[in-house]
C-alpha cells in the first residue's frame, strides 16, 4: 500500500506542471486534460518501465509528448482550432495579471512550430535542463538549444507585430512587453 501511495503521490505532484505543458501544446484545456488523463493511465499501466532513480516528472512529460504527437498526426486540423476554451481556465483563476496578456501570448505561442514551442516551454517554463529537454524530445542537446533560440526570436517578432491583424490593439502588445520588463 505504501508504495502505491508513493507512486500516486509522485504522479499527483507532477500533474499541475503536466497540465500546463499540455495546455501549451494543444492550446485547448479540455483536450489538454484528456491528454493528461491518458498519460496517467499509460504511466500506471507501464509503471514497470519507469527507471528507478530517474525523474518521474520527465518520464510523464515524455509519455504526454508522445501521445500528443501521435494524436496530432491524426487530427492535424483540429489542433489549430484553439479559440475560446483557454478563456475557460482563466475564469477559474481570478487573480491573473491580465487576461489580455495571457490571450495574446497564447496566440503567439500557438503560432510557433511545434518543435520550437515544446522546447521553449520545457526549458523556459517547466524548469527542465537542456539535457532533460533533449531526452524528453529525443533529440540532441544542441538541437534543443537552437529550437529555444529560434522560438524566442519568433515570439518576439510575433508580439511586436503592429496591431492591425490578429493581435488586436497595439497597446495590448506594448502592455505585454512592458509588463514583462517591470518585474
Amino acid at each position: 500500500m505504501t508504495m502505491r501511495s508513493s507512486v500516486r503521490d509522485a504522479m499527483l505532484a507532477a500533474v499541475p506542471s503536466l497540465r500546463a505543458f499540455a495546455i501549451s501544446l494543444c492550446g485547448n484545456v479540455d483536450r489538454a486534460d484528456d491528454l493528461v488523463q491518458e498519460t496517467l493511465l499509460r504511466a500506471m499501466a507501464n509503471i514497470d518501465s519507469f527507471q528507478p532513480g530517474t525523474n518521474m516528472s520527465a518520464w510523464l512529460f515524455t509519455i504526454l509528448r508522445n501521445l500528443f504527437r501521435s494524436e496530432y498526426r491524426k487530427r492535424r486540423r483540429e489542433v489549430e482550432d484553439t479559440d475560446g476554451s483557454y478563456a475557460e481556465t482563466l475564469k477559474s483563476h481570478p487573480e491573473q495579471h491580465s487576461r489580455v496578456e495571457f490571450e495574446e501570448f497564447r496566440v503567439a505561442l500557438g503560432k510557433l512550430p511545434q518543435d520550437q514551442r515544446e522546447a521553449l516551454i520545457l526549458v523556459g517554463a517547466s524548469g527542465f535542463s537542456y539535457e532533460e529537454a533533449a531526452a524528453i524530445c529525443e533529440c540532441a542537446v544542441g538541437t534543443i538549444k537552437s529550437r529555444v533560440n529560434r522560438a524566442r526570436t519568433r515570439l518576439a517578432e510575433l508580439l511586436s507585430i503592429d496591431g492591425t491583424d490578429d493581435f488586436g490593439p497595439d497597446q495590448s502588445t506594448r502592455a505585454i512587453l512592458s509588463a514583462g520588463g517591470q518585474s
Partner: peptide, 21 residues
C-alpha cells in the same frame, strides 16, 4: 519573454490538481 512565459505557465500550475485526476 521568459518572464511572460513563466507567468502564463505558472498560472495553470497554481490551479493545482483538478479533482478529476
Amino acid at each position: 519573454l521568459g518572464d511572460i512565459l513563466q507567468r502564463v505557465y505558472d498560472d495553470v500550475v497554481r490551479q493545482g490538481v483538478p479533482d478529476r485526476f
